[in-house]
Write a protein that binds this DNA or RNA. Structure first.
Lengths: 205, 205
DNA sequence: ACCTGAACACCGTTCAAGT
DNA sequence: ACCTGAACACCGTTCAAGT
């Protein structure tokens, strides 16, 4: 008797169903994945270990969808800008996934690859070795925060002008929420790269 | 017949119980708050509207525990550094609360007060008006990311040296997790302020 | 080896009922 | 006005039982 041609389930099917649910509803659950795949809830545990495991697989998925681009033949500034941008773009692909990712430590080796590229790039900047780690972390903080903000619902951020005049001036003509986030990201990216450049030149101590 | 001397419940009691549970376990729930206060779960809904409402009250609590310090009699650089630091310190007070806060939009007016101070400070830097919003957002991203990282469990971040040599060099002697985060925060803070200073001087475009 | 059904210990929220 | 108990529709995870 031949063994069954195809199993009902696979890690890939589970991850895809989870991602689809996240994109559509902002979250996933075992019951809903099982329903989506026409399978019982408990059978999922034959392929994956836990909810956290699924989240880790989703993170890896984010880095496998868009292959990393070679970056060695540019100035370190342009290379850094490119890496940070592509990091952000991965999150932008599935914005609703971001909140699920930020509270969990990274295990996926694919993600490490990007950190490695960033480390290599920052070494070219002339930044002292002990500053490379902090620089990577700072960039990570910034990109994560920006990704989280992009997730937030469009809210008319109108903070009672009479109480907060400077804030009103600052947010007066800031356009749509997406434009606001994009401008903030571009600004922060320039400022970070410029700041790192100064630090590398020892112009700040 | 006199009315009861004191109600069994108050918003303050609920918020304090929730914060205690978060500090101890990393989360709160209606059943556990109710048990803590010796009260039925459904009675909580007489004082608060939803789980999200409690989270918003916890955020406000974070800003009321430490009163904001006056900041007008310093250089804008020192003032900015101070504001960003105190922002981060609020999170550090209750690290396990941070993951609950980052995925929810801000409503608390207390928080707006800090943004207003930051806006006033950045105006003094000479930054063009249209850059103030992006600057505040970038700082917010950075501080939030740093706070999230401080929450993460101490993990020996040892990424198989042979695969990621630059990453290994960067993280070689980075000490404890708390030290690592502190160094990253200090580095990023300097870099951000220096970058904003350059931008204000039109030295970058 | 893989899948199912039932069970367990949790959630947030609502609502009729009591005082 | 405030509190309770019961109910509802959800969770993640385990495990004996089937094939």
């Amino acid at each position: 008797m031949p063994r069954p041609r195809s199993a009902l389930l696979s890690v890939e099917l589970i991850v895809n169903a989870a991602l689809k649910l996240v994109d559509e509803t902002g979250d996933f659950s075992f019951p809903r994945i099982a329903r989506e795949l026409g399978v019982s809830q408990s059978s999922l545990y034959n392929r994956i270990e836990s909810r956290e495991h699924i989240i880790e697989l989703l993170r890896a998925q984010l880095f496998e969808e868009i292959p990393p681009q070679p970056v060695a033949d540019q100035s370190w500034q342009d290379a850094a800008r490119m890496l940070i941008r592509s990091y952000r773009d991965r999150f932008a692909q599935h914005p609703k996934l971001v909140p699920l990712l930020v509270t969990q430590t990274v295990h996926a080796p694919v993600v490490m690859g990007m950190y490695e590229d960033l480390a290599l790039t920052l070494e070219r900047s002339g930044l002292p070795t002990e500053d490379i780690g902090p620089a990577i972390a700072s960039i990570d903080y910034f990109a994560l925060g920006a990704a989280l903000d992009a997730t937030a619902p469009d809210e008319v951020w109108d903070p009672s002008p009479e109480q907060f005049p400077a804030l009103r001036r600052a947010t007066a003509c800031s356009g749509t929420s997406a434009e606001r986030v994009a401008r903030a990201f571009n600004f922060g990216l320039d400022v970070l790269v410029a700041g790192i450049e100064m630090r590398a030149k020892q112009e700040i101590y």
